[in-house]
Design a protein around this nucleic acid. Structure first.
Lengths: 190, 190
DNA sequence: TTGATGATATGATAAGCATCATACTATGAA
DNA sequence: TTCATAGTATGATGCTTATCATATCATCAA
């Protein structure tokens, strides 16, 4: 190896990270190879030394997002000991307003169904992992923690996606508030 | 008018309908002007006699979807007298498996946030209308029907979008089942 | 210091697409 | 039956984009 040993790996990671952000901000179709390379400080031609195709980049980026999200969760695992805390930070205006750094689920939910299976597999695993993580936190009055966790994810992700879709700020806030309140009432360990 | 009086209107309607289906099936970026014209049996050139731009078509198609969904609801308003019935038909495998004829909300949720305001306005109205419709059906033990309706929409739409995203059929079913059961328990009038 | 080679750049190609200018055609009025 | 015109078709333009072939550059071993 003539370049520093991890040079290529670093570039690849940077590309993945850039693609993951672009994807959540502009959608999968809004990601262009040239734009991603530029973000990393390179030009478009060298791209194919790192990925076989754009589709391969997209698939890998989806995986990256979920892995990153999981790592983040584990990092703060200590501070999030109740469902309440999780709901508050997830169903929040900050999360709504920063899609490029947020959870991939609400950012990509409605388009993922149109992807090839490879890219969707990452979704399966991401959702399953998150559900397991949340199931553990369920208060004792919840009889089926795993099912409850899935239902919780559906509403949290739905609320964020909805709140990003509407044009009216007040309606957007109301959507977040309604879901947050309903979920906390449902899942508070009181 | 040399053509039959409503000729152009019919073509326009057909274009809207085709665009609305294409959009839910392939995403807004997956809709090409030529493809929509072809679906209607025309060629791409004449498109601009009907719409100023592709964006105008998209915006109108979003509006169309919501209007159509509302009409459908009103049509079956008599048969849907309880929230239960609505939840059952919405959070269903049939709905999941037919995005092009289904509710626009889960089909477009995560991309709508990236649209220009014009197209998003249709979302506001569609969601508001649906929330009002559902609020009326809320059982008496629900204290804030409007907020409860928004929370209900978030979970229903989230569940459909999620169930479409995952690759594994069993997981997809589980997601639907979990949300359906949770919602029915929450909103049954018993 | 030099050369081999892995990483990146330049430039080209071809396809897809929205948009538009212009030509044609079907239709109802005369 | 003929003509004016609304609606549609043909074909072109220019842009963006993925992909690839080839050239150049940066680094480490010797």
């Amino acid at each position: 190896m003539r370049y520093a040993a991890e040079h290529k790996d670093q570039t690849r990671s940077a590309l993945l990270k850039a693609a993951a952000e672009e994807m959540r901000a502009h959608g999968p179709d809004g990601v262009s190879v040239a734009a991603v390379m530029k973000r990393v400080g390179l030009t478009h031609g060298g791209f194919y030394a790192h990925f076989d195709s754009k589709d391969a980049l997209i698939a890998a980026a989806v995986g990256e997002m979920f892995v990153h999200a999981a790592r983040r969760r584990e990092k703060y695992a200590g501070s999030i000991t109740s469902i309440d805390g999780f709901i508050d930070s997830y169903v929040s205006a900050v999360h709504r307003d920063n899609p490029s750094r947020g959870c991939p689920i609400p950012a990509l939910m409605s388009e993922a169904g149109r992807w090839p299976k490879g890219a969707r597999k990452a979704f399966d695993e991401g959702i399953t992992r998150l559900a397991q993580r949340l199931a553990v936190l369920m208060p004792s009055h919840v009889t089926e923690p795993q099912a409850a966790a899935m239902s919780l994810i559906a509403e949290m992700a739905g609320a964020i996606a909805l709140s990003r879709s509407v044009a009216d700020a007040a309606l957007s806030d109301a959507l977040l508030d309604s879901s947050r309140a309903a979920l906390k009432q449902r899942f508070t360990s009181n």
